[in-house]
Amino acid sequence: MSFWEKLSKMDNRIIYTALLVIMIWALIWPMGLPIQIGTSAKAAYETFDSFESGDILYVSFDYDSAGATDIQSSIEACMRLVLKNGGRVVSGALWPIGAQQANYAFKKMQEEYPHLVEGVDFLNLGYKPGGQMYIEKAMDSLIEACANVDNEGRNLSQFPIMKDLVTLKDAKVVICGNHGSPGASEWVPMYATAYAIPNNKPFVVAASAVNATINAPFIQSGQITVYLNGIRAGAEMELLTEKKGTAVSGMDAQSLSHILVFVLMILGNVSYFMQKRESRKQ
């Protein structure tokens, strides 16, 4: 077997090790490459910075802990901005584990803003099955869509925040944290197209990077007004809200891993052409 053939059939474990080493390297010794703030993050910042005292943000945690690596930092930055301006946040989840992600985010917000009171400033409605049907129902009555219980099984009517959020239409903005289905593909027809866009309200999606291609048509058509794409958007939002976190620290590792893929692509192609040349000679 020639050198080029060996190279093209390189053991996967060598590639895995190289990737692991460079990612650990970047996380321990970050290079601090400059992160440019994109137009989407700026638009998101303007949208949430416009919240006034009493305005309600509805966040749908439609992802699990795996999607959280890409999405959670964007969502938390948006919630932080809203709560800083005196706004309120209500969360739901179309994914079972999304309810836990919401608890996680609210716990963090409570640490940052200790004055927040559950049921007054924020509330986690929890996981609600049904996907598209839940959204459709929540457009008429949130309490009915939630079977009148929050994440802990408590009666929703007792919470002051729910008096101002009778339907989803009462939320100033809805964000969907999207890692698959149900997610943006359900929110776009049932909420954005049916209500938000005709009423000039923004519809924000914070999605894991793998969903970028599938959501692109909705962004171009204006059905998704603000799109926060993957950990990159999370890093930009963290910079804008001046609260650096895991997203900013992960960007160098992302850059280096992309460079490794690029180098491997070049090696793969060089070995391919050299093998072709060798076989032609023979």
């Binding site: 390189m10 996967n12 590639i15 895995y16 990737l19 692991l20 990612m23 699990d64 802990s65 795996a66 999607g67 959280a68 690596t69 584990i97 891993s257 490794l260 893929v261 491997l264 692509m265 090696l267 793969g268 192609n269 391919y272 052409f273």
Partner: peptide, 24 residues
């Protein structure tokens, strides 16, 4: 556990890119 499972994608995509993205 879920984050670890998701992170496997990075490894698999890297090997897939090496194997598939060739100027054939």
């Amino acid at each position: 556990l879920e984050a670890a499972i998701l992170s496997q994608i990075a490894f698999y995509i890297t090997t897939a890119a090496f194997r598939v993205l060739r100027m054939r």
